[in-house]
């Protein structure tokens, strides 16, 4: 079965940006590859932005990872998928409740329409998010070939 990174490449669900953008713009850009093949509506990103505005940047994890998402079967989420984006510049999401800075360079923007597929995506993402050498290689990626090379070099293992 294809890994999530292979699927991201196969479906062209990737984007690489070099310009400085706000987190709202970054979320919009990260979802564009999903809009292009009808995985989500062009309005879907607004649901995510509203959610982060309401609950804070809790979707931003350690190691410059952001996993912007809305609810399962959200309005405008037609298929299950992951919009991957590498931002060469750090995207500032503000601070969390402890005053800790929330910053991202890797975006894994989720659309969940099918529970089983989504569950599998989440399981795999958990392994990726805990695979630091892979994350570092992904931050340097400039092409789909780079994504696949990074995965081949630093495969995910079952972490605890």
């Amino acid at each position: 079965m294809a890994t999530v990174l292979q699927t991201i490449v196969d479906k062209k669900h990737y984007r690489f940006i070099d310009e400085e953008v706000t987190w709202q713009e970054a979320v919009r850009l990260s979802a564009l590859s999903l809009v292009e093949d009808g995985t989500v509506s062009d309005e879907y990103y607004k649901e995510i932005v509203a959610c982060i505005e309401k609950h804070g940047p809790y979707v931003v994890f350690e190691n410059y990872i952001a996993m912007p998402h809305s609810t399962e079967n959200a309005k405008g989420a037609f298929k299950t998928g992951i919009g991957f984006m590498v931002s060469k510049k750090i995207v500032d999401f503000g601070e969390d409740e402890d005053g800790e800075k929330k910053e991202a360079k890797l975006f894994f923007t989720l659309s969940a329409a099918n529970a089983d597929e989504h569950m599998d995506n989440i399981s795999q993402l958990m392994e990726i998010f805990q695979n630091e050498p892979l994350l570092n290689a992904l931050m340097e990626a400039n092409s789909p070939e780079d994504i696949l090379a990074a995965e081949a070099k630093y495969p995910c293992e079952d972490t605890y």
Partner: peptide, 22 residues
Amino acid sequence: CCANGAGSSLMMEKAIDKVMKK
């Protein structure tokens, strides 16, 4: 629990399950 019940809470459930199994 998480805000949406779709992303981080699912990750939490899986991470908890690993501890339960251990």
